[in-house]
Amino acid sequence: MTDVTKVASGPEPRREPAPGMVERRGASLWLTHVLMILGVLIVFFPIWLAFVASTVTQPEIVRPPMPLWPGDQFLTNYKAALFSGVNVPVATMLFNSLVMALGITVGKIIISLLSAFAIVYFRFPGKSVFFWMIFLTLMLPVEVRIVPTYEVVAGFGMLNSYGGLIFPLIASATATFLFRQFFMTVPDELAEAARVDGARPMRFFWDILMPMSRTNIAALFVILFIYGWNQYLWPLLITTDPEMNTIVMGIKQMFPSGDDVADWPVIMATSILAMIPPIVVVISMQKLFIRGLVDSEK
């Protein structure tokens, strides 16, 4: 009887918000956007100045006031940075940094995925002990273990090589922990169904766990790529050949010592070029990165 009465009476009229509520909501929305725009401008302004400095001549930079609009030396300065540089062409250093960052990123993700898979889905003596040993390595950054790591790399003859730049940094307790936590949320019924269908463990890993981990992998890829790209101390320690310099090392070496005069347009051009690969990675994987942080996709 109640249902018939509701149908007969029709839908309830929509309640309009009070005018004061609309005005307050609109004002707060505008204020939020204004604050966000101001924040973006504050962050972007130094980058804009660096770009402007990379397009003008040396006298225009050192003579105040510094220009706020790009000059006519864009091609000249960027060509000098890419193919001449100070010690090594920037193109070579960018390639070295790209190889190092990609190697560290892919290596960390592969090792972490396999480690987390073994810890969650396999039974073996001391499984918890091994996991906590991996987790405790978070307390030991590269700076703490840099001397023994250098001795091992030197003993294997990997100084001034891409292997020496990559292999000591590809283990990641953080990524292993994150993948372990994600795998533990996967329903056990999926593993049971795969076992009933005759799928071996690695088939279950590739066909079920890997597609489910796609957004998590993307989020970690962005973070780990920036981590590898910004490495400075380890490449500085194990590379003595200028041809193996990374872009972060190159920028530091461009600054003058003593009474030397810095070539600021070339330095600024190099800094802008050094920002391009991480920006491309972040923009191209932005959607997956956000989903990997806020969506478990279970």
Rank of each mutant, 00 (worst) to 15 (best):
E189Y: 08
F183P: 13
D259H: 05
I146L: 03
E189D: 11
F95A: 11
F182V: 09
S213R: 05
A191S: 08
N77F: 08
T5Q: 15
D263P: 00
V261T: 14
L273Q: 04
M275T: 12
P64T: 09
A262I: 09
M275R: 02
F182N: 04
P65S: 08
F255C: 01
P17Y: 10
M36A: 15
P70W: 01
S9P: 00
R24S: 12
Q253C: 00
G126T: 09
I109R: 06
P201V: 02
S284A: 15
A81W: 03
S271H: 03
V282Q: 03
E297S: 14
M21K: 13
V7N: 11
E12C: 05
G228D: 02
M158W: 15
I134M: 14
A218I: 15
A18D: 12
I267W: 01
I166A: 06
L29R: 15
W69E: 07
L75D: 01
F289P: 03
R123T: 11
V261M: 10
P235Q: 04
P278R: 07
L220A: 01
K6V: 14
T149K: 05
F122G: 01
T57Y: 11
S9G: 12
F74P: 02
G250A: 12
F182Q: 09
A80C: 03
A116R: 06
L38Y: 07
S213E: 00
A116D: 07
D72N: 14
P235T: 06
V144W: 10
A101P: 09
Y150W: 09
M1I: 09
R15L: 14
A199N: 04
G26K: 10
A194F: 08
A53H: 08
L209R: 06
D260F: 13
I247Y: 00
L82W: 10
V90A: 10
R291D: 11
W30A: 15
M210P: 06
V147F: 12
T185Q: 15
S284Y: 08
M285P: 01
F131P: 04
E297K: 13
G250K: 02
A50N: 14
L288S: 15
P65C: 05
L49I: 14
F124K: 04
T176V: 09
W48N: 10
N96H: 08
F182P: 06
A191L: 11
L273C: 02
F183V: 08
F156I: 05
G258R: 08
V120T: 15
G258P: 10
N216T: 06
L209K: 05
